[in-house]
Structure formats: structure tokens, C-alpha cells
Design a protein around this nucleic acid. Structure first.
Lengths: 193, 193
DNA sequence: CTCATTTCTTAACTTAAGTCAACGAGTCGT
DNA sequence: ACGACTCGTTGACTTAAGTTAAGAAATGAG
């Protein structure tokens, strides 16, 4: 199981056995059942997540309606804004599937960064990379129509369309479930003729 | 001028005179006239920007049309994805106003990080903070209508509405200039009655 | 100052997303 | 196996954004 993590890290830096053991000794691997809520609105959490297996989703409840804004799957990292800003969480995080997740907190990070500065460097690089990725994502979202966004998702994360319920996908695409339902036939019609 | 920068940094860490001098000696303060293009599509740049004064904007040209996706004003930092990914740039960056900007590159960063590890730590924190901010931004964008987005912007960055041309604001809000034009009177009508 | 260009607004029309409601299929708990 | 929910689809209607076009206002270059 840990190999998934170390293979991922190996793309950025090579770790000594000592360093790997330091990570393992933190003992932060957790498994959750589908449906478990990891974070609730209003909570003062300081947990960051790294998905080894499975899928979690972030969603707001606005006027009693769930608004799904993100899905995190294998090798995705998520530090909720409430952790960074030390404010109560504005949203929920729950497991869409049975999942294996690494949960860390700032104290653990500080400890590791202190012992192995290399990790802080790694985290800086990862976070800059994430930031760039998310910028591009946001840009694509802004510059395209719901239809294009769906086609885009079909290309970039085809798995999501399989593993995620439609109404969650819809708000992820910034539209209503009924609209998503109508999108599909419309696209088909275009490709046929 | 540099004080602007050091005041900003002081919110995160305190710097010694040595460290301040190290930054100043990099001699990366630049001034640009309104209209100057800092980065072009297709370019292989490795420059990151930090706006001390003025305003720059990022925009794509898609089907011959400008799509503005971001504005960076005082104390905003921007590392274009092309720098992180070492790929040709997908977008343009230009100065909307006469601006004073700090331009850095990965080599300079590496040098500074090596001499003063504190800076890498600072950059990690900054970038995590930025990531959180952008997540919230994206979430707000997804979960609201063009009208709400405009009202939102009016609240969170009222200066932008003054200093930026409407058609650029429009694509920033994910709509056409004509739609933005119609938004305003509609909102007024709602508030009046 | 003047002409050319860009920017903003307005209008008429088209298209697609939102809303409300109904219905069948699937899921869950008991 | 049953009924209660949830989920996805469909339909009719409303609303707002896209499109195309025209013209007024502001800006810039010479």
C-alpha cells in the first residue's frame, strides 16, 4: 500500500530508507467506508488528506442544496482552506467510495520538515504544481460552456463519469442535474450528423 | 518602493538586514508601461511575477478572441503554469496599467533558497495560502450565477471594476461583454423595488 | 484637432440553462 | 418483500446568456 505513495514521491525526489521509515512511523494511513464524512461545515479541522485509493468529494450546502465543487482520486492531495486559514470549514468532505487516505496535520508536517528539510522542499514544489494545475482548470472552466466542460471532463477524467453520481457531476460542472441530463442527447445528435 | 515588499513579507516571517540585502541585490525590480506584453503564447518563459504596483492581466486568445482569466494587482504573485511545467505558454500576460513588478526565475530562487532556507519555507506557505484562496474562488465561481459573480466581485475587489475595461471584466466573469452590459441595469431594477 | 479604432450600449432574435412537476428505476432499511 | 427515498429522465414553460448588428461614446495616433 505504501508503495503507491513512495512511487508517487519518487517522481520528485529520491528518499532514503530512513526518510521512508520516518513517514511510515507517522502511522497516518486510514481506511474509510463509502459515505463517511471526513469534514463538516463549521468544524475546526487541521487535517490534510492524500488519497491513496478511492474517491472523496468536497461540497457546500447552500440553501439546503449540495453543491459539489471537487473530486479527489488516487494521488490527489487536499488541504482544505479552513486548515490554511485556521477558520471553521465552509464545506463538507465525504467518501464517495471505500477509500484509503493519508491524514496529516501541520504539527506532523513541522516535525518532518524539521528532521528532513527535503520534505518541505517537496511540499513547496507539489503545491506550486497543484496551483498551476488548478489555474489551468479554472481557466478552462471560465472560457468554456457547460457542454464544452462536459466534453472536456470526458477527455481529462473519464473515470469520474463512471464512478460519480450524475447530480454531483452536474454541480461540479456548474449546472443543474436536469441540464446535464439534456446535454448528453444533444451532444450525440451533433456527432451523428 | 522595496518597503512594500518587506512589509508584505513581514506578515509571514521577520527578515534580517542580511536577508533583505540579499533580495535587493538580486536587482529584480522592473517598471513597465501600460500595454507592455510580459509573456506571449508559445513562449518558453521561466519568469515569475510579483506585482508591487499596478495591474497585469492573463488572457488566452481562442478563435481570435481574447479570454481574460485573471487580474493581478498590488501584492499578488503569479507563476505561470508554463514555468512550472516547462512547456510553452498557453496564454498572454500584459500590463493594464503602468506597473512595478518583481521578476524572478527558478535559478534565482534556488540560489536564495540555498543561502536562506527560510525563503523556501516562506514560499511554501505562500503557495499553500494561494492555493486555498484560489480554491475558494473557484468554488464561488462554480456555485454562483453570472449575476451573483458580478455582485461578488463588487464586494471582494471593487477596485477592479474601476480600473479594468468592461469587456475584459466580462470574460473574467465567464460571460460576454453584452451580457455584462445588461447585468447592471437588471441589478439596479431589483434593488430599486 | 481629426480620423480611425476600440469600447460600450442597445435591440431583436436564438439558444440553452433554470424551474417546476411528474414518472419510472433503482436502492435501502426494515 | 414492502414501502420510502433517492436518482435520473422527460416535458412544458421561463429566464437569461449568446449572437448578430448597429450606432454612440471614448481613446489614441498622427
Amino acid at each position: 500500500m505504501q508503495d503507491l505513495l513512495f512511487d508517487f514521491i519518487a517522481k520528485y525526489v529520491s528518499l532514503t530508507e530512513d526518510e521512508k521509515n520516518a513517514i511510515i512511523s507517522l502511522d497516518t494511513f486510514r481506511t474509510f467506508k463509502k459515505g463517511v464524512i471526513l469534514l463538516r461545515e463549521g468544524q475546526n479541522s487541521n487535517e490534510a488528506y492524500f488519497v491513496l485509493k478511492g474517491c472523496i468529494r468536497a461540497y457546500y450546502i447552500i440553501d439546503g442544496e449540495e453543491k459539489t465543487t471537487a473530486f479527489y482520486t488516487e494521488m490527489d492531495a487536499l488541504t482544505p482552506p479552513c486548515v490554511v486559514n485556521k477558520t471553521p470549514s465552509e464545506y463538507y468532505i465525504s467518501c464517495i467510495e471505500d477509500s484509503i487516505i493519508i491524514i496529516s496535520n501541520p504539527e506532523m508536517e513541522a516535525e518532518i520538515f524539521d528532521k528532513f528539510p527535503k520534505f518541505e522542499s517537496l511540499c513547496r514544489v507539489l503545491s506550486e504544481e497543484l496551483l498551476a494545475k488548478q489555474q489551468i482548470n479554472f481557466d478552462e472552466f471560465k472560457t468554456s460552456s457547460p457542454e464544452q466542460r462536459y466534453l472536456n471532463l470526458l477527455q481529462s477524467r473519464p473515470d469520474l463519469i463512471q464512478r460519480v453520481p450524475q447530480h454531483q457531476l452536474a454541480s461540479y460542472l456548474g449546472i443543474k442535474p436536469e441540464s446535464l441530463s439534456r446535454l448528453r442527447p444533444r451532444i450525440m445528435a451533433k456527432n451523428k450528423w
